[in-house]
């Protein structure tokens, strides 16, 4: 750990990216997959609507993308703040 202020900045940056990722996580599953499904029912996908697709496939694919994005992002800021593992 470098010093107190830079470690605070590192943690703030981490919490910020977590909040962004979790917002997307909630929107694709609870939003598009469940609560917003009736609102999106006009968009058709393979014999049904996009909400059904998000609930059964879309959300899972986006979950994977989120985790990898987070891993890549954190590796980058670990190095920037000098807190990566040597």
């Amino acid at each position: 750990m470098a010093d107190k202020s830079s470690s605070n900045a590192y943690w703030t940056a981490n919490v910020r990216v977590i909040c962004i990722c979790l917002a997307i996580w909630a929107v694709v599953s609870y939003g598009f997959g469940i609560l917003l499904r009736p609102a999106l029912s006009g968009i058709k996908v393979g014999g049904t609507d996009i909400g059904f697709w998000f609930a059964q496939q879309g959300s899972i694919v986006i979950f994977i993308a989120l985790i990898f994005y987070y891993a890549i992002y954190m590796n980058k800021i670990d190095r920037e703040f000098g807190v990566d593992e040597q």
Partner: peptide, 10 residues
């Protein structure tokens, strides 16, 4: 089940 058992990994 599909969303619940995968979303936990996030």
């Amino acid at each position: 089940y599909l969303m619940g058992w995968t979303g936990g990994y996030v």
